[in-house]
């Protein structure tokens, strides 16, 4: 009699994740205004992106009004993904990184594009390239593209 080795199945679980006030605000403004918004900490005075209720370093509340921030900054770190796997945002090879937007104090993760991958360097200046049709999600920004200083 056969000893069955394994059972193969796919699990599918649908969800409805609630954005909450600050995330809703962030994506609505991205779509409507083509502007990235952050929040200023009432204690340390630094600006973090995206908009948030509390500074994750000071645990102090942020100012009530969100702060528009620059869509330019520099690459703090990055990776080029060569490994293909399901659910990826793009077809490898592609680059994404942590971007320090001007005037902010934390890092904003996004794709890096519009440049040959081998030219990407830490410290490079980048600017957001926007999609003309925006749906209120991260890909309202296509990617961040290196620019001259």
């Amino acid at each position: 009699m056969e000893i069955v080795k394994n059972v193969k199945r796919t699990c599918y679980v649908p969800y409805h994740w609630c954005y909450g006030y600050y995330n809703t605000l962030f994506f609505e403004r991205l779509k409507e205004e083509k502007v990235i918004y952050g929040s200023r900490c009432t204690s340390c005075g630094k600006v973090v992106v995206p908009t948030t209720a509390v500074c994750a370093r000071c645990f102090a509340p942020t100012e009530k009004d969100p702060v528009p921030v620059s869509d330019e900054g520099y690459i703090d770190s990055f990776t080029i993904v060569y490994l293909p796997y399901p659910g990826q945002p793009s077809t490898p090879p592609y680059a994404y990184g942590m971007i320090k937007l001007d005037g902010t104090s934390n890092l904003f993760m996004h794709m890096i594009g519009g440049v040959p991958l081998e030219e990407i360097k830490v410290g490079m200046r980048v600017k957001a390239v926007w999609n003309e049709e925006r749906r209120g999600d991260f890909y309202d920004i296509k990617y961040f593209q290196p620019v001259k200083d």
Partner: peptide
């Protein structure tokens, strides 16, 4: 949205 997985998250730390 970036479905980063573990290798690429650490790759960012590495670079």
């Amino acid at each position: 949205q970036f479905a980063a997985g573990a290798p690429s998250a650490v790759a960012v730390q590495a670079s």
